[in-house]
Design a protein around this nucleic acid. Sequence first.
DNA 1: CACGGGATTTACGTAAAAGTCAATTTTGGG
DNA 2: CCCAAAATTGACTTTTACGTAAATCCCGTG
Lengths: 128, 128
Amino acid sequence: MRDYYSITELTREFGISTRTLRFYEDEGLINPMRRGRTRLYRPSDRQLVRQILRGRRLGFSVSEIREIIEVYKAPPGEVGQLKLMLTRIEEKQQDLRQKRRDLEDTLEELAAAEEACVERLAELGVTT
Amino acid sequence: MRDYYSITELTREFGISTRTLRFYEDEGLINPMRRGRTRLYRPSDRQLVRQILRGRRLGFSVSEIREIIEVYKAPPGEVGQLKLMLTRIEEKQQDLRQKRRDLEDTLEELAAAEEACVERLAELGVTT
DNA sequence: CACGGGATTTACGTAAAAGTCAATTTTGGG
DNA sequence: CCCAAAATTGACTTTTACGTAAATCCCGTG
């Protein structure tokens, strides 16, 4: 496990631009270390980037991703805060479960469309 | 099953604006009938709107949604077209399966975070 | 027929999420 | 130490997905 990654290493690994990483930093999603002005990304930062991109692929906005990231951090000490966090976690879970339903439905419809294509090809005497 | 729905009926049902429906029409996603200038949405249009919103929730762009919708239509007659469509369907399936992995991973992490909160609350003597 | 309530069209506006460009600064290798 | 490559900052631009506003039109009702 490497100690630090440079910004371009991460851009190559994840297929994103430096602008994107700096944008996420401006938005407060990541906080890489600095040596002088140069950013040094720790493994934990790298992990965070991975989580951010996962959220992005799932169609979450930056502020939604921010909320998700918040709950990955160490749980707060105060009871009220803890309960609030539990509520937020459950909201996100609801959201994700809806997405999962949407996803399964779409996959089913795609499978049906696929089958229709294959059948049509068979009718035309094409072996898939 | 109703014959037609007005634009406002659909906005209420789906919680979207008329602007949004007209936008999807401009983008070629839906093609409601007209009586004069007034739009009349058939059940099939309504179903299409449902599919569009599902795609939207999954974070697909309008053009990606358009591609998905394309494959729901009757399969084309020509062999080349059919094969192309099969390729596209499989691409979408790949995409959705990636999303599903992202989703499951995120759900797991949220569950872990949830448990951490509950434990912390227990330590503080709070019964959830 | 006047009117009030929807619906439509056209046009401009905007927020989010980067992309692009230009002008420095920094840095690591020879 | 020096210089090309890499990194940084800041400003401006672009794309997407609608929002908003103004002007017009259509239609049933009193």
